[in-house]
Design a protein around this nucleic acid. Sequence first.
DNA 1: TGGGCGAAGATTGTATAAAGTTTCGCCTGT
DNA 2: ACAGGCGAAACTTTATACAATCTTCGCCCA
Lengths: 235, 235
Amino acid sequence: MAAKTRQKSDAPDVSDRVSRIREGVTAAILEHRLLPGTKLGEDEIGEIYGASRTLVRTALQQLAHEGIVNIEKNRGAFVARPTPADAREVFEARRLIEPTIVDHACAAVSPAWINRLQGHLAEEREAELRGDARASVRLSGEFHRLIAEMSGHSIYLGFLKELIARSSLIILLYRRHDTPACGTDHHAEIVTAIRKRDKAVARAQMLSHLREIEAELFLKDPAADELRLADVLGA
Amino acid sequence: MAAKTRQKSDAPDVSDRVSRIREGVTAAILEHRLLPGTKLGEDEIGEIYGASRTLVRTALQQLAHEGIVNIEKNRGAFVARPTPADAREVFEARRLIEPTIVDHACAAVSPAWINRLQGHLAEEREAELRGDARASVRLSGEFHRLIAEMSGHSIYLGFLKELIARSSLIILLYRRHDTPACGTDHHAEIVTAIRKRDKAVARAQMLSHLREIEAELFLKDPAADELRLADVLGA
DNA sequence: TGGGCGAAGATTGTATAAAGTTTCGCCTGT
DNA sequence: ACAGGCGAAACTTTATACAATCTTCGCCCA
């Protein structure tokens, strides 16, 4: 018998082959194993995941909609190269949406959620202790997604997933070399505010957290994009 | 390099066959020719547009991501049936995002844009005069999309496209029978505020406009969804 | 020597065929 | 008469084959 095809209800992604490909490629991109501009050949990916091009194509189209992959007609899929202008747009959107999300999270707080959040904070601290920048960025994104899930708003959650994916790419591209892994303390403070159901503080801290992340980036004027890109890719 | 003015993935590629299918089905859904819950068979649609199921499938997946189509595994694609809870989420998101969008639109105002907006207002007035409710809803959505394009923020534009598509479906499902076509005056006032670059007024009027639209809907508690749906579908 | 033309190779876009799942009708047994 | 199960049909899912397009590299000519 097929022991794994028993998902009757709406299982979002797990156990779906397309989703496995999508998540695998996403992880590779967000952990910087695939650099911006890298070509994602359909055969190549299909080989890796033992899937036909049909499934790979579906996954790539979803990633394109998420904004971390660009598909150029008759040329193929490439890892997105967000410009500083894109970065500013993404963070502006986050500054607009996320304060509202934490607001809702405060209303939906429960002991189980606090546990999940604090477990996540522990993971983040551990990654930071290891100096694992890639894991830190990934976990930081997951923290924000967790709060969006907590808010219970599926629309905001969907939007934020997109913004987080793009943000991770942006942070890996434009982070200043000398800045330490940021924000774990901020995250802890946000969790505290949520636990106290203090909406005003939670919003304010989320906002300043996002501002700080953006401030740590190196967003020059668009004309210099190519130089920066060459620098990062060459290093 | 100079010809790099190409848009992102959601470019208005009219020449693209997938986009033709997507826009055709979207129009059919938003104009209420396809009722919520209707099954969208791949063969059926492929027959209509003279395309193979491969292309139809791609289009349906995009529509599913937009939220106006639900794809159930091994069962097919169906026109989405947003619940009142969905409706409230969508309008909450719009109330959050659109005031900011008009804010940016005020900053980006130009004579050409004012012309486009006023041309659109004329179209809306004409549709309303004809009593064409379907066209009114469609044009109303396009008005909001126009402002988002004007703002120049591609992230907001993408989000709003999704929200507008869902809103149109929601409005067609939950509009009260006795309310007249709404909002054309509001739209005119918003255009006036934009032309004066009066951000505060533009934001306030956009917000009250959205509130009014939502207030004209009939959003009962979720338990009564099925009744409402049966009523609409039976009529 | 440099540039342009062209054919070969590789890759994507599209269509069609094979495989798996669900659904619905029909039939049998109680 | 009705409940339950068997089976065929329809559909979706996945894979593969074919067509179109782009890239690359070599060759020829100015």
